[in-house]
Design a protein around this nucleic acid. Structure first.
Lengths: 231, 231
DNA sequence: TTTTGTAAAATTGTAGACAATCTTGGATTA
DNA sequence: TAATCCAAGATTGTCTACAATTTTACAAAA
């Protein structure tokens, strides 16, 4: 399952949530993958109760789907959900970017540049999954700047779900089309130009959505049974 | 703890979540109350694991706060959080009301009227807690109309948290000031007037916030120990 | 009286056992 | 061959026991 094990010896369920979340968001586990409780507990060296708690927490975030008596799976959002997530982001993130611009400090801007650099580096290294993950961190950093913890938390889960969506529906795996948008946005924030930041964020989200291939996907590997079970 | 026991004999954790949620939102348990796992499991006739799962789910909704080794408490939002919740609602609900108006059917409008009637009846009966709960259901019904499950889910948790906030900060316990706003909003939706619905919702939220007394509350019953622990 | 210290009680955290359910693989039958 | 059935295995659901921690109650000291 490939986990970077920067974990304490007796990890809490939160530690496990974090580790699994990174793995899912960086596309190191595919959407739809089964997450067996015994495996999780073995990998992290805890009892099954803790693993269970972690999986339930991820389910509340929308990154994992739990089906009774069948277990936990990495979430596998459909096109409907993909559109909905970006619809929600469109309501929250532009205004949040404006607030961020209005209260950004030089230190904060520096942090944003660091995020962009890390993302760029991951792309150079060919690690697309990590780049997507880091791109999400950039959006979350902006949300944090706005100093509205409640909204930031909602954006955080939406961004996370977007990583899954990108894994499934991104059109051109090699295009590094985002770099530019993040740079421009950071400039607006550095300049304290709230109105421009709001506009850029709005446009950026539209671009992201436009780069998804949201035609109905034809139930690729599923048996008739699995297909019917989804209804 | 006063639970309306319309529950199955072997309730699932979801059943328990629903029952506890209603109790919290209708102000039948005060913010800050301890929710002891053994009590919950006894009341519902299940093992402690199921009670635990239910409490954790409520914690993810923001209705319960879990402190490690100390247990679960009904959430007790501060003024900061109160403002943040309404800030978030202001971003989501006006646009959602517009969508609702644009796609409302006569049957949906009828449902909204039913909600209003029920809320009115609870107020007449002097059950303010229930009225607040039903008022929340009205907002959630509108969110459902917009046919955006992701946004509706976010609104749902925000509205729920608002019930707690109203319990703590509402200025005039006897004023039935909301009735009018909900009527006008329903009219706009019935007329399919999206722009008006959006405006009315925006104004309604501003009014709600204005009716809260958000001066810093002076740590009413807390010992020095509890105060310091919050940091 | 007020504070401090200590032991008992209460409560939560975690693991593991058992039951319930689902999945798998092979044998049986058409 | 293909479909069906059934038993064995695997996995999840729930409960309970025990460990870790906190809270309470009460006695001792200032």
């Amino acid at each position: 399952m490939l986990l970077q094990s920067d974990l304490p010896l007796n990890p809490s369920s939160d530690d496990i949530v974090g580790s699994l979340r990174r793995a899912i968001l960086a596309h190191r586990v595919a959407p739809g993958s089964k997450l067996v409780e015994d495996e999780v507990s073995d990998v992290f060296g805890v009892g099954r109760s803790i693993a269970r708690t972690a999986l339930q927490a991820l389910a509340h975030e929308g990154l994992v789907t739990i089906i009774r008596n069948r277990g936990a799976f990495v979430a596998d959002p459909g096109v409907r959900e993909a559109r909905e997530v970006f619809e929600a982001r469109a309501l929250l993130e532009p205004r949040t970017a404006r607030s961020a611009a209005e209260r950004a400090t030089p230190a904060a801007v520096k942090l944003l540049h660091k995020h962009i650099a890390a993302e760029h580096q991951a792309l150079q290294a060919g690690d697309l999954g990590k780049a997507v993950y880091l791109s999400g961190l950039y959006h979350m950093a902006i949300a944090d700047l706005a100093d509205q913890a409640t909204i930031a938390a909602m954006i955080s889960t939406l961004v996370a779900r977007s990583s899954l969506i990108v894994a499934l529906y991104w059109r051109r795996p090699q295009a590094l089309c985002e770099s530019h948008a993040h740079h421009a946005l950071t400039d607006a924030i550095a300049a304290g130009d709230g109105a421009r930041a709001e506009d850029l964020m709005k446009g950026h989200l539209v671009d992201l959505l436009a780069n998804l291939d949201l035609r109905e996907k034809p139930q690729v590997g599923g048996s008739l049974r699995d297909i019917l079970r989804q209804a």
